[in-house]
Design a protein around this nucleic acid. Sequence first.
DNA 1: ACAGGGTAGTCAAGTTACTTGACCAATATC
DNA 2: GATATTGGTCAAGTAACTTGACTACCCTGT
Lengths: 148, 148
Amino acid sequence: MQNSEAMALSAALLAAAGELTQRIHGGVVARGFEGLRPAHGFAFARLAPDGATVTDLAAHLGMTKQAASQLVDELVRKGYAERRPHPADARARLVVLTGSGWACTRAAEAAAAEAVRAWADVLGESELRALRDRLLRVAPNGPVRPAW
Amino acid sequence: MQNSEAMALSAALLAAAGELTQRIHGGVVARGFEGLRPAHGFAFARLAPDGATVTDLAAHLGMTKQAASQLVDELVRKGYAERRPHPADARARLVVLTGSGWACTRAAEAAAAEAVRAWADVLGESELRALRDRLLRVAPNGPVRPAW
DNA sequence: ACAGGGTAGTCAAGTTACTTGACCAATATC
DNA sequence: GATATTGGTCAAGTAACTTGACTACCCTGT
């Protein structure tokens, strides 16, 4: 693939990612969850299954644990998460989503589905699946974090 | 497309974009251009063809013109760009890349081509072109800017 | 031709999301 | 049981932005 083609691919990928991020964020706001930035979404994604420690979260988001702790402070203050004692380590604290946090997560999923549906209207279902499959092969286990 | 599939697509897209951004940035640093952040790359992309005004740049990057002006200050201080009088408007100033700025732009293109080649090894050339074409149809004219 | 409003850019100050550094408590290692 | 390591927080500093105020210049209409 030529240099210019690589740039076209890069630009399109970054543009699509930026648009998707904004649509998800906009959809979350439209559903009544305010005071959140896109970065919080990446934190929610890590907290969602079973909770996580601050250190886990910091590694996932690519920031210091102090910064992650401040972010958790903010989520706690706004009622989206809470700190619980860790069942197996008295030093650690397990950060878990509250009911409001789960509702926000579902809102983000709905917003993402909405954005993807707009793409389905352009590409069609089968092309969209092909796009997804190729992206999954290219970036299989990537930490989804704000990289720039 | 189901909700979970939409989330898988979103995660893969964001992971791929994050990885690409980091690889480009890493490649630029590896080629000896320091003191630059990924955001500067988006500025370079706008300045590259014929230069741009600070206001143009601000719109392209999705920030205030004051912030764009500060960013230009930084690029000027580091020797990547310079402010020239605008040929048609005495209020405006045309920000253009210096030789060093062009060299950095070429380094970024080379790094992007390198990252894309790694994907070509996984997908193959034809699949990669298909990926590029689908992304171009989904995000045709997007402003490539740091969105989160 | 010049008055009024809009636009390009900068200066100054404030905000915020991070950082580095120091520290304590609990845990693993030997 | 001494020692080093890990999880977390407190405190202070930094850097990339923001909002607000201002000047210089352009454009239109009468």
